[in-house]
Amino acid sequence: MSADEDPRRRLAVALHYDHAGAPRVTAKGRGVLAARILELAAEHGVPVEEDAALAEALSQIELDREIPIELYEAVAAVLRFILMARGR
């Protein structure tokens, strides 16, 4: 198993976007916490986009803070993915 496949190193970051301002980081964690974030996403039908570099960048943002302008384009791509996954 490579380091990237090691569940203890897995990283997950959750965003919330309510169309007011920029998306906010609402949860983040590694290992067991990352697994729980992904589990909750699956339970609630939230699409998951895997992008290790973006997740790492987003993990540096404090909880409940808007994403910085430097990440707008990358996060917009994720939002497009989610909208397409939901058929919109």
Rank of each mutant, 00 (worst) to 15 (best):
M1C: 03
M1D: 09
A3R: 14
A3E: 15
D4I: 07
D4Y: 10
D6A: 05
P7K: 03
P7C: 02
R8P: 01
R8E: 13
R8G: 07
R9S: 09
R10I: 04
L11S: 11
L11V: 14
L11R: 10
A12R: 01
A12P: 04
V13K: 05
V13N: 01
L15T: 02
L15N: 02
L15R: 03
H16T: 12
H16S: 13
H16F: 13
D18K: 10
H19R: 10
A20V: 13
A20E: 13
A22Q: 09
A22P: 01
A22C: 10
P23A: 10
R24P: 02
T26V: 15
A27P: 03
A27F: 06
G29F: 02
R30N: 09
R30D: 08
G31T: 04
G31H: 05
V32W: 13
V32T: 15
L33F: 09
L33R: 08
R36L: 12
R36G: 11
I37F: 01
L38S: 04
E39A: 12
E39M: 13
L40K: 11
A41S: 06
A42F: 07
A42L: 11
H44C: 04
H44W: 08
P47H: 06
P47E: 10
P47S: 08
V48H: 06
E49I: 01
A52P: 10
A53S: 15
A53T: 15
A53Y: 12
L54H: 13
L54W: 12
L54E: 12
A55Q: 10
L58N: 07
L58E: 08
L58A: 11
L58V: 08
L58Y: 10
Q60C: 12
I61T: 02
I61P: 00
I61S: 01
E62F: 03
E62P: 00
E62Q: 07
D64F: 08
D64Y: 08
D64S: 05
R65V: 00
E66G: 00
I67M: 00
I67S: 00
P68W: 00
I69C: 03
I69M: 07
Y72Q: 08
Y72H: 12
Y72N: 09
Y72P: 00
E73L: 14
E73I: 12
V75D: 01
V75Y: 02
A76T: 07
A77M: 13
V78N: 02
V78A: 01
L79N: 04
L79Q: 06
F81M: 06
F81V: 03
I82H: 08
L83T: 12
A85G: 13
R86Q: 15
R86I: 09
G87Y: 06
R88S: 08
R88V: 07
R88F: 11
